[in-house]
Amino acid sequence: MEIRADGISKKFFRKGRGTNYFTAVEPTDFTLYSNKLTGIMGRSGSGKTTLINMLSGLLVPSEGKVYLGNCDIYEVSDIERSQLRCSHIGVIPQGYTGLQSLTVLENILAPSRICGGEDRTEKAMELMDKMGITHLAQVYSNELSGGEQRRMSIARALINSPHIIIADEPTSDLDEENTVLIMGVLREMADTGAAVLMVTHDKQAAGYADAILTMDNGRLIT
């Protein structure tokens, strides 16, 4: 399954004097292919996160369309779009995004429970083993270190075996050991058929990508 963007752009309203709108992403065409790990690099504020949020179904483009397979994801209802995201897209957001009321295991299982599918505890245990956080299964997420949190987020994004994985700076603030571990997992996902898109500033992480695109002032340069 692929994700395709046709002419998507995003403008934001800005309070204050002068021009009220600024363009975060200029009209962009883009396709994220299966079996590929694609990286996007660029300076802060160049529009990388805005672009991947639009591709993830989390931010409505000001213009243009985003297709998941043949489905225009912004034409369907919120419930249908949520279901599509749940079943097909694994998103690893920027920063520490553990739900503090839940343990690590509960956090990882949350997307599968939201989707309402089968019990995926076994799969969660496998992912925790792969990420080296099995011993933290019953620990609350706010008690984890930065690297542990990030590994938990990745395991959580993979629990529903998504066809598309979108990661926003998955290795920022991590040491080399954690970077190698996380990029190894993302590489493996791409090699086994997933379409993986990653935003990064990290050159070591970028070395794992099949292709690197650059974002500059809202423009995607291939």
Binding site: I79, Q83, G98
Partner: peptide, 13 residues
Amino acid sequence: EFGVLRVMGASNR
């Protein structure tokens, strides 16, 4: 928290 739940596939409902 709400943003993370949405990322995981939770609907507004």
